[in-house]
Amino acid sequence: MHGIKKWFGTFQAVDDVTLEIRSNEFFTLLGPSGCGKTTLLRMIAGFELPTEGQVLLDGTDISRLLPNQRPVNTVFQNYALFPHLTVAENIGFGLKMLGKPKSEIDSVVKDMLKLVHLEGRGNNPVTQLSGGQQQRVALARALAPRPKVLLLDEPLSALDLKLRKSMQMELKRLQLETGITFVFVTHDQEEALTMSDRIAVMSTGTVRQVGSPWDIYDRPAERFVADFIGETNFLEADVVSVSGDRARVRLSSGAEISATYPDGVTPKGKVTIVVRPEHARLGPPGSGVLEGVLDDIVYLGTDNHFHVKVDGGGTFIVRQQNAKSGPCGFSEQERVSIAINDDVAQILRD
């Protein structure tokens, strides 16, 4: 996609988005609700025309083609199954409209039913299926014509947690088995991290960062991305020196650590760095790079969250796994020191 802009009247829903989605990948558009994910997806499908910019598929511009002229299928958020048709008729609809012979439709439908574990349900009316089953019919229906790209708009949001987890695995499996490019929309960061090959994080109509789940989580380029995904500590720091892809930064305590920085940024002067809570350790005073008072201990079963009031202002959260059973060895209001693992701090673009 190239320089996509979309206005609804005077409201700009998508602002200059350029994205390259590779074939056969599981690509996720992640962002808070209202940031323009659906609008972007609808422009790929052809339900909306971009006000400016192009949608390219294998190098050809498809942005002005009608939805029924694009080799792209959608799994709708509410499934949008045809209530007057059976499961098999729903799945075969696309192929039928493409004018495929009945024998071919029948065999594809059979394969699809197997693929989504709905064997023997072909003649059921879709209205009699459970939510999870309807979801799988919607998937099968969109996959049956073997589109080049499958678009999924928050397809799991209507399912309960357990079903959602299993459908996540299911989707990933389907993507691998079919080799079709999936473009998946969600506002759930965990879902995005689990399933995606690459993620585009969006906010108010723009793409803030594109990268692998690891990139997005461990190397967030800006505050919005770091904040939206997972829990994060933000620290003010001064850049001391830069060498290669690392920079030395001085924290408020005077201690120096090394930090990575995003592409296209030359770190200098005052910067904000992020450190994930699980990338820091708690120790006796003087053992780490930040000193403070342990304000609060939150026990979460698998791990503890330590809220530390850092000397000189701010709270830093440290997350430590409960590898052994028994007390964690720290008590509230105790003076502690925070050590930060090597190569975990990331400088943000301002």
């Binding site: 499908a45 052809g46 339900f47 009608l66 939805p67 029924n68 792209v72 299928n73 959608t74 709708f76 949008a80 199954l81 045809f82 609809f93 696309g94 409209m97 493409l98 229906r141 969109a142 014509p145």
Partner: peptide, 8 residues
């Protein structure tokens, strides 16, 4: 929309 999407 689903119909158009499925090539109708």
């Amino acid at each position: 929309e689903a119909g158009y999407d499925l090539y109708a």
